[in-house]
């Protein structure tokens, strides 16, 4: 536990210092932990656990857009779990308004179960369609076609700066739309 947290803290420090590879590694490393927590939360609330991926993506977006509130001298774990907890409670509360109970979900026990690598997530994908065309194209180019910022700039004959702006704005409004929904 301790070692894991130290590793995360080190990666996040490098990320803040500008190392995108470290940032990518960090997000990859925390995702299974977030997924397991999301599945546990859904199961405990009697909700279908296959919605966990939407919650994971929600948490990752919040981590990304709020990472400037992390104090680089503090351990990363408590900060991450505070964000995750907030998003999970939010998600459960939102789903709680709908009557959505399936007997089979109660039967499922998840303690210790290794979660599936990547379940399907629909909410981010759905909101992506509502973004302005330019932001959507840039996001899709980087996400789906795994193009670099440079390649994306060449593809749409934009400057790299403009791609960066569209990318960041796209992520910001995606998060805002997820919150308003």
């Amino acid at each position: 536990m301790r070692e894991r947290d130290d590793e995360w803290t080190g990666l996040m420090r490098s990320a803040i210092a500008g190392d995108s590879t470290a940032y990518h590694r960090l997000l990859k490393a925390v995702t299974p932990v977030l997924r397991a927590a999301a599945r546990r939360g859904l199961a405990r609330a009697g909700q279908p656990v296959d919605q966990s991926e939407d919650i994971v993506q929600d948490i990752l977006l919040a981590v990304h857009l709020k990472r400037h509130t992390w104090d680089v001298t503090a351990p990363f774990g408590p900060w991450l779990f505070a964000i995750a907890r907030n998003k999970l409670i939010d998600a459960l509360r939102r789903r709680g308004r709908r009557i959505f109970v399936d007997i089979d979900d109660f039967a499922e026990t998840l303690a210790g179960e290794t979660p599936a690598e990547t379940a399907s997530a629909s909410e981010v994908a759905a909101q992506l369609q509502t973004l302005p065309a330019r932001q959507r194209e840039v996001l899709q180019s980087i996400a789906v076609d795994s193009a670099s910022i440079k390649d994306t700039a060449a593809k749409f004959s934009m400057s790299e700066g403009a791609v960066r702006v569209a990318l960041h704005r796209g992520l910001t409004s995606l998060t805002a739309k997820l919150r308003e929904r």
Binding site: G18, S20, H24, Q57, L60, H68, T118, V144, H168, L171
Partner: peptide, 22 residues
């Protein structure tokens, strides 16, 4: 968009620096 794709996108945006809250 699957989670790996989202993570790739977030990592690509790492250069963006938000101003401190203060």
């Amino acid at each position: 968009m699957d989670t790996d794709q989202l993570i790739r996108t977030l990592a690509a945006d790492n250069a963006h620096r938000a101003r401190p809250v203060g």
